[in-house]
Design a protein around this nucleic acid. Sequence first.
DNA 1: CAAAATTTGTTTACAAAGAAACAATCTCCA
DNA 2: TGGAGATTGTTTCTTTGTAAACAAATTTTG
Lengths: 151, 151
Amino acid sequence: MDMPIRTADEVDLDRLNSALGFLMRLAQLKIYERFFEEVGEHNLKPGEFSVLWVILHNPGIRQSVLGQRLMIKRAHMTKLIRALEDQNLVSRKIPDGDRRAVEITLTPEAVTRVRKASQWFFSYEASVGANLTAGERQQLTALLQKFVGLG
Amino acid sequence: MDMPIRTADEVDLDRLNSALGFLMRLAQLKIYERFFEEVGEHNLKPGEFSVLWVILHNPGIRQSVLGQRLMIKRAHMTKLIRALEDQNLVSRKIPDGDRRAVEITLTPEAVTRVRKASQWFFSYEASVGANLTAGERQQLTALLQKFVGLG
DNA sequence: CAAAATTTGTTTACAAAGAAACAATCTCCA
DNA sequence: TGGAGATTGTTTCTTTGTAAACAAATTTTG
């Protein structure tokens, strides 16, 4: 007589529990969940923060390059940038050298705001993976960097 | 004179390149990209495969429990299950004990199909992270399991 | 040089996923 | 027992992201 499964930890995942794609998805969802629980006043989404952060460190970066680095598709990047422009956080400039391209810069207000949000973000980030030891966390970071080709 | 940034590897990510949330997102996108490149004939999406796999190993599992384990929201689970039902892959049964719940089972066709797809899936999975050594891959898996609480 | 191919960004249409409100059922306890 | 609250699933609406077709500018190459 099989009893019906009543709680999530009784579920048999078989080999799925060592599938990297599966584990990575669970990990990312867990991280995002906490992000939104803790983001508070800054009301930036993870994608918005990373875009603004990268523009801060690479003023005049082109949309296409930004998208390649952050793995955001061009169609989506267009919408992200427009939304940021509507909030007066970024400005777009068509460079003389290549009039197809768009170069993005932060507005002064955005610089202040991103600097402030980054203080929250990186202290939040440091608290991600609190159930790992410091060494394990460091190892995980290094392995992920190698995995994605940023090491 | 700042030269404009022309390629993705010139982009300065500053501390973002050690942020677990960021690395995890890149890793997952990379894995999904390869999944769709290689999935071939099976035309199952990652979410569909994992749902079917878990039902195979837990026949009669309830929608809510399935969703908890796979971190799929109830509203979305309803749609996934209906889509699978429309393809005649799962059947739904309201148990006598609790007439709010829905118990899910694979159809015989689905059992065959999932077994077959799983052969592809797990050999694909084994090839994920080919740029890591076997030891690193094993370490990454273990760290992720601990991170998400499956260890 | 001029036609062909590529790059860059936008638009439109659509798919995937979440949020909130809802209905039905069940549980708990006064 | 019976009513308040919780659980389960569905529906509707919105957000997020992708795909494909397109336009404009640039690069390549015959």
